[in-house]
């Protein structure tokens, strides 16, 4: 009976079914790959925010008419760097930052080494996301804060960031998902995770079942991140009172 199914799968292009089932049923191996898929982008997201959050804030506060204007030349340079980094395709960027990975981690291959290119690629993206969120800020509220004697630092930490919290959370959700996607691509330079599994086993060794399984797990991960992010953002938003929240749920 199983012979029949195996030949059927082989007919559809699914080869070496027993091997694939063996991999998929080896919980440890699969779990490790899922773990790599989560922790690498998670760390990269963290580092991307360490760089991108201040950068995004400066992009808003430093412009002419901002709360702490900076020299125009400096702002132009910052904007150009952000745009340049964002316009390099990720696959090429990964190769380009190999020397940097070697400098920071001593190696340019392996799972941990992919954190460096991921961070470099994601930081300017995060900066733009933060910038977009902060631009939603009502100018009048900032003016009110200035009229109350707030310093630029107090305006950023006590007014802009807390007031834009729901939007910043949405940005974080968006960034995590994008970085998760980039992380899957990092399989191409020897990074681990489900992306690598789908690429190496699924495509390289023509194990299609493994490939689809890896993709399905990635889809589930994205769904989970999105749901948690949206729920967190809505829950933290005090502009929506409880009545409209329940109405919104009903309409969904």
């Amino acid at each position: 009976m199983s012979e029949f199914f195996i030949s059927l799968f082989e007919g559809w292009g699914f080869l070496k079914v027993p091997e694939q089932i063996e991999y998929l049923s080896d919980f440890g191996a699969l779990a490790f790959n899922i773990w790599e898929t989560i922790y690498v982008p998670a760390l990269a997201t963290l580092f991307a925010y360490i760089i991108g959050l201040p950068l995004g804030i400066i992009l808003v506060t430093g412009e002419e008419g901002g709360v702490s204007p900076m020299p125009k030349v400096l702002m132009d340079v910052l904007n150009t760097i952000v745009n340049l980094l964002r316009s390099v395709p990720f696959l090429i960027l990964m190769v380009m930052v190999i020397p940097l990975s070697r400098l920071i981690l001593g190696t340019s291959v392996g799972t941990a080494a992919t954190i460096v290119p991921l961070t470099v690629a994601a930081a300017p993206y995060v900066a733009r996301l933060v910038e977009i969120s902060l631009r939603e800020m009502d100018r009048g509220v900032i003016e009110a804060a200035q009229a109350m004697g707030c310093s630029p630092w107090q305006i950023v930490t006590k007014v802009m960031l807390p007031e834009c919290r729901p939007s910043l959370i949405n940005g974080l959700t968006n960034a995590s998902i994008t970085i998760l996607g980039y992380g899957a691509m990092a399989g191409a330079i020897g990074g681990g995770g489900l992306g690598s599994v789908a690429l190496m086993r699924g495509h390289g060794r023509n194990q299609k079942i493994v490939m689809y399984a890896a993709v399905i797990i990635l889809v589930i991960l994205v769904q989970v991140i999105q749901s948690i992010g949206t729920a967190w953002s809505v829950k933290s938003d005090r502009r929506i009172n409880n009545n409209t929240k329940s109405k919104r749920r009903k309409s969904l």
Binding site: V141, E143, A144, V159, P162, E163, S236, D237, R238, R239
Partner: peptide
Amino acid sequence: GFNLLMQR
């Protein structure tokens, strides 16, 4: 426009 902090 009142300019209150909406999240407080």
